[in-house]
Design a protein around this nucleic acid. Structure first.
Length: 133
DNA sequence: GCCAACGTTGGC
DNA sequence: GCCAACGTTGGC
């Protein structure tokens, strides 16, 4: 089981909408690097749901259901289905992640524009220690 | 609102 | 195939 992170502008699609809908098709990903990660997602993998924009933070968890696949309506674009798992009572802010100093080699920190990415093991450990996972 | 970083487009 | 110009994203 692998961990990934997917960003969404809450004005476009928020964790609350996701919680209501229970499942969503994650689409619109065209960036080649982001698509690479989408292709690696497999059923059962866990995805951190991240709100970008004002107050950027990880707000919840999703589970990959079904295989990622090309978007039939848009060339070079890929999509994947997510099932809602949970919304964090206390989101993990980007500020906290940066200020901890432990995750400088994570794309979330050094490559802000990337919308879909993997998650380093030491971040998972960090969350387990904090009893968030 | 600004700007850095990066992706895309199109002319050559 | 290169690169300049331009567009987009996302953090601040």
């Amino acid at each position: 089981m692998n961990y990934f992170l997917a960003k969404s502008e809450p004005g476009t699609y928020s964790i609350d909408q996701f919680a209501k809908e229970k499942t969503t098709t994650w689409n619109g990903v065209k960036n080649p690097t982001a698509v690479q990660f989408l292709k690696k997602m497999q059923p059962g993998d866990t995805v951190f749901f991240y709100h970008s924009g004002e107050n950027p933070q990880i707000v919840g968890l999703a589970e990959v259901v079904g295989n990622s696949r090309p978007d039939p309506t848009e060339p070079r674009s890929w999509l994947v289905d997510f099932k809602f798992l949970k919304k964090f009572e206390t989101p993990i802010t980007l500020k906290e992640i940066k200020e901890s100093g432990k995750f400088k080699d994570w794309r979330l920190v050094y490559q802000s524009r990337l919308s879909t990415m993997d998650v380093p093991d030491n971040f998972i450990e960090y969350l387990k220690k904090k009893k968030i996972l």
